[in-house]
Each structure stands twice: as C-alpha cells, then as structure tokens.
Simulated assay, not measured.
Amino acid sequence: MNNGIVKFFNDQKGFGFIKDDKSGQEYFVHVSGLVDEIRESDEVSFDLQEGRKGLNAVNVQLV
C-alpha cells in the first residue's frame, strides 16, 4: 500500500489525481477504484495497477 494526498478530484466526472507521499509522483484515480468517498486534500492509502495510460491508483481509502 502507498500513501498520498488527493491533489484533485472531480465528483461529476468521477476522476482525479493522487500525489504519492514518498515518490512525489501523481497517479490517476477513477471513481471505480475508490473504496471510500474522497475529496481534495484527503490523506489516502492506495494500490497501483497498470491502466491504459500508465499506473492508476486503485483500492483508494481514507487513512
């Protein structure tokens, strides 16, 4: 599991980005990869999974 902060999330469109605490990289997150509802600036834990355009955050849950 990785930890990070929700940098951006659009409820209407169902996607956003999470910034990893350790690497500083940003990962795409889709509403289908959420365990909990998230908002911008929430601290979350997540797994990474290969998607169409690179790694995506999945199993995203609040810390």
Rank of each mutant, 00 (worst) to 15 (best):
N56H: 12
F46P: 03
L34N: 09
G14P: 13
G54Q: 08
N59C: 01
G16C: 02
I5M: 11
G54S: 04
D11A: 10
Q49S: 10
E26G: 10
I38P: 13
I5F: 08
K22E: 04
F8M: 12
K22R: 14
E40R: 14
G24V: 06
M1G: 05
G16P: 08
L48C: 01
L55Q: 13
D11Y: 11
F46S: 01
H30D: 04
D47Y: 04
H30S: 09
S45P: 03
V63K: 14
S32E: 08
K19E: 08
E43I: 07
F9R: 12
D21G: 03
N56A: 04
I18N: 05
Q25N: 15
Q12K: 15
M1V: 06
Q25C: 06
G51F: 10
I38R: 13
Q25H: 12
S32A: 11
E37I: 04
F15Q: 06
V58S: 03
K22V: 07
E37S: 10
G33N: 11
G33K: 14
K7R: 14
V31E: 08
G24W: 12
K22N: 10
N56Q: 14
K19F: 04
N3R: 15
L34E: 03
N10Y: 13
F46G: 00
S32G: 09
F17H: 10
G16A: 03
F28E: 03
L48W: 05
R52G: 10
N2C: 01
V58K: 11
V63T: 03
G54L: 09
Q49T: 07
N59Q: 06
V63R: 14
V6H: 13
N2D: 00
I18A: 05
Y27P: 08
G33I: 07
V60W: 07
D21Y: 10
A57E: 00
I5P: 09
L62E: 00
K19D: 00
L34H: 10
K7H: 12
V31L: 12
F17A: 02
D11V: 08
V31A: 12
L62A: 00
Q61M: 01
V58W: 07
V60Q: 05
V31S: 14
V31C: 13
I38H: 12
D21N: 14
V60N: 02
V44R: 08
G33W: 12
G4C: 02
S32V: 11
R39K: 15
N10Q: 13
R39N: 11
E50F: 06
V58C: 02
R52L: 06
N56M: 08
E40T: 07
Y27M: 04
F28A: 07
V29N: 12
V35A: 06
N59G: 01
V44Y: 01
V35C: 03
I38T: 05
V60E: 00
G16L: 04
N3K: 15
E43V: 05
K19Q: 14
K7M: 06
D20G: 00
E26R: 13
I38Y: 12
L48D: 00
Q25D: 10
V35S: 08
S41D: 04
G54H: 13
K22G: 03
E40K: 15
V63L: 05
K19P: 08
G14Q: 12
G24Y: 11
N2S: 01
